[in-house]
Amino acid sequence: MSAELATPAAEEKKEFWRWQENTWFDESKNWRDAKIITCGIDVGSVSSQAVICCDGELFGYNSMRTGNNSPDSAKNALQGILDKTGMKLEDIHYTVGTGYGRVNVPFANKAVTEIACHARGANYMGGSKVRTILDMGGQDCKAIHCDERGKVTNFLMNDKCAAGTGRGMEVIADLMQIPIANLGPRSFDVETEPEAVSSICVVFAKSEALALLKAGYTKNMVIAAYCQAMAERVVSLLERIGVEEGFFITGGIAKNPGVVKRIERLLGIQAVETKIDSQIAGALGASLFAYTLMQKQAKAA
């Protein structure tokens, strides 16, 4: 009996905030056939991604948690995909770095802000109809308008506070002792939709969540109340620049249907869907920027 109990006990110690790291590449393609191979590296505050594009088309990516320093995180993210595809650093023609740590990507040829990269990435992932992008990152939240080519026309960022960011979601996952990937589905497993927690601030929302549990809310209801609060929070951010048709969500929280569905409900608009991992939008945009820069150089030569 005691031996059987050992496994769940060990599981209790796990880190509930920890989200899935992953690597993918298009096995139907051979990168050796490509004329131009470009790379985009997004070193964010929480996660780092490396994306490889062959002739301006997505080929492969690796997404992982950011380590203690930017250069190593950039290297590790890239190494993950190089190992998988058998590519070498020398095979890459041009690299663009983006994200918080963009200036610390040692092998990057250029740094571009994450705002421009997310717009470009979303334009590729959701198509040219994408006009409004909401990026919910680990430590910030951005609202972006772009034109049909993915060029930014209006943007704003909120990096002052953890509310409405992935970090805020991680705090709740830990508090509820529920793996972060389960938060979204569980938030819909409620009989009645509770009201949003009233606090904007993550610190106060935490004590409010505990009070709700004490008052007899189920965990699922608390999660629903929190997802609703987060949705309301980012929608209020979007209001400043407005939402146009062709609405696209990038960043880790795009994977949380508990927040996404509630945002769609509040806005009365459906987000454009994509099969590509929403977390790589920035790095993908950077890789596409790199491709454009290569083409420009080729024309000039």
Partner: peptide
């Protein structure tokens, strides 16, 4: 491009 620098809290 309209660049909004600042925050909301």
């Amino acid at each position: 491009m309209i660049a909004n620098n600042g925050y909301k809290d």
